[in-house]
Design a protein around this nucleic acid. Structure first.
Length: 271
DNA sequence: AATCGCGCCTGACGGC
DNA sequence: TGCCGTCAGGCGCGAT
């Protein structure tokens, strides 16, 4: 259920439980995710200490001396920390058990997620090497977005959801950031002014920052058995609110399909 | 080179 | 109650 805020919240939630712990066992129940889980990690990681837990875009990176495990949650994936003896439920495809008696468990009904391994620098991995900047980093600026958008004929919603342009902006927060910036989701990216990109770069940062703070309050307890996704409680202005009144002008929020994805906006506030 | 739309899966929900 | 169609927060890949 992951956009960047939930992936980051997940990373923060699991870290205190498994950082610097060593791997006691790996269990692969269903290797068929988006790509097969490499079986070799069952042996390779045994006894290895988990040195770092980082995030790149929507990937969680578990780094060991011998290499890095890359985890992507897809559409329906989640990670949770549990006592090792808790029996697996349906769709619990993968466990990483640690010497402290805890288990990092991957759950994913739709199996669009992935668990991969690389011995090399993960930044050079095929799936990470062409990713754009982190939206909350200083590399992501109005100038950057403006330059990247020049001569682009795609609409602005697709541009900001393109991970080669900027990582971590999913379908919900693309709609939300465009609403806050007053930009219509169908506007051609290459024709938007630098001034409007200034506003958009700021709303992307603010909406993600607030969502992380929100996720942090409701996803805090990663050792409980009923972890609920944090940002259902997030105050969304337009996403999922087709037909309801715009919080700014009161006119009805629209929902149109852009690139096979539902896109919510106010036709009056967003131009 | 850039853009498009397909398809990987399961589950929830609404209409009949 | 059950069946069927639709939709879902992602994203790489092949076709154009």
């Amino acid at each position: 259920m992951p956009e960047l805020p939930e992936v980051e919240t997940t990373r923060r939630g699991i870290t205190p439980h498994c950082l610097n712990q060593s791997v006691a066992k790996i269990v692969i129940r269903q290797p068929k995710l988006r790509w097969p889980i490499p079986q070799r990690i069952k042996k390779i990681l045994l006894g290895e200490s988990l040195n770092k837990i980082e995030r790149r875009g929507k990937y969680i990176l578990l780094s060991f001396n011998c290499g890095t495990v890359l985890i992507h949650l897809g559409m329906s994936g989640s990670l949770r920390i549990l006592p090792a003896e808790v029996p697996p439920a349906k769709h619990d495809h993968f466990d990483m058990l640690f010497n402290n008696g805890l288990c990092l468990r991957f759950h994913d009904p739709r199996r669009f997620g992935s668990i991969l391994f690389t011995k090399d620098d993960p930044a050079s991995h095929k799936l990470l090497s062409s990713l754009g900047p982190e939206p909350l980093s200083s590399d992501f600026t109005a100038e950057y977005l403006f330059e990247k958008s020049r001569n682009k004929t795609v609409n602005i919603k697709q541009l900001i959801m393109n991970s080669k342009i900027v990582v971590g902006v999913g379908n919900i927060y693309a709609s939300e950031a465009l609403f806050l910036a007053g930009i219509h989701p169908q506007r051609i990216a290459g024709k938007i002014s630098k001034q409007r990109y200034q506003r958009l770069s700021e709303t992307i940062k603010s909406v993600l920052t607030e969502a992380i703070a929100q996720g942090g309050t409701t996803l805090r307890d990663f050792t409980s058995s009923d972890g609920k996704p944090g940002y259902f409680s997030q105050k969304l202005n337009v996403y999922g609110r087709a037909g309801q009144s715009c919080p700014q002008c009161g006119s009805a929020i629209k929902n149109s399909v852009i690139a096979q994805r539902a896109s919510f906006y106010c036709g009056k506030c967003q131009r």
